[in-house]
């Protein structure tokens, strides 16, 4: 309990990567994107539910959501999806204990599991960036 009250880092402790670096940012973003997609998805169920009212009702709904602000919002959902999906596949692989090395007796020079996983994290971030750029190109052409 004492430790919990003694949070010297404050908000920076939650937002900053500290010595965990990029992995810690990936964790924070995974949470943020997961919650964002969930919020969008719940609204999405009601918006796509407008199809029950038939073609006219659907066209009226889509005319409303055609505004640039909603298009930009949908693009954000797309970016969140790419990050969450690609990082999530990495998490599934790692959590099933694949690609993290076999347990061994600690011997100098010491390694830790964060460092062993680092190349995988970097590779996954590059893949996510490439997919996001492809989506961005598509979005650009859609707007023009």
């Amino acid at each position: 309990m004492k430790n919990r009250l003694n949070n010297r880092l404050g908000l920076g402790g939650w937002l900053g990567g500290g010595r965990y670096g990029v992995d810690r940012y990936a964790y924070a973003f995974h949470r943020l994107t997961g919650l964002g997609i969930l919020a969008y998805f719940i609204m999405h169920i009601f918006v796509t539910g407008m199809r029950v009212g038939g073609q006219e009702e659907w066209e009226r709904t889509m005319a409303f959501f055609n505004a640039p602000v909603f298009k930009a919002g949908e693009f954000l959902v797309f970016l969140a999806f790419i990050f969450h999906a690609v990082n999530g596949i990495r998490l599934v692989i790692v959590e099933l204990a694949c690609g993290i090395g076999r347990p061994h007796v600690p011997a100098y020079p010491y390694t830790n599991s964060t460092m062993r996983q680092r190349p995988f994290v970097v590779a996954v971030m590059i893949l996510a960036a490439l997919l996001m750029i492809t989506g961005g190109v598509d979005f650009y052409f859609m707007l023009n």
Partner: peptide, 24 residues
């Protein structure tokens, strides 16, 4: 939770491809 993630990758991947990679 893990199993559903794998199912979602395929289905939502196709859904997002249809909706957001449509121009390409």
């Amino acid at each position: 939770h893990i199993l559903s993630a794998i199912v979602i990758v395929f289905l939502l991947g196709a859904h997002m491809g249809t909706m957001h990679m449509n121009t390409i």
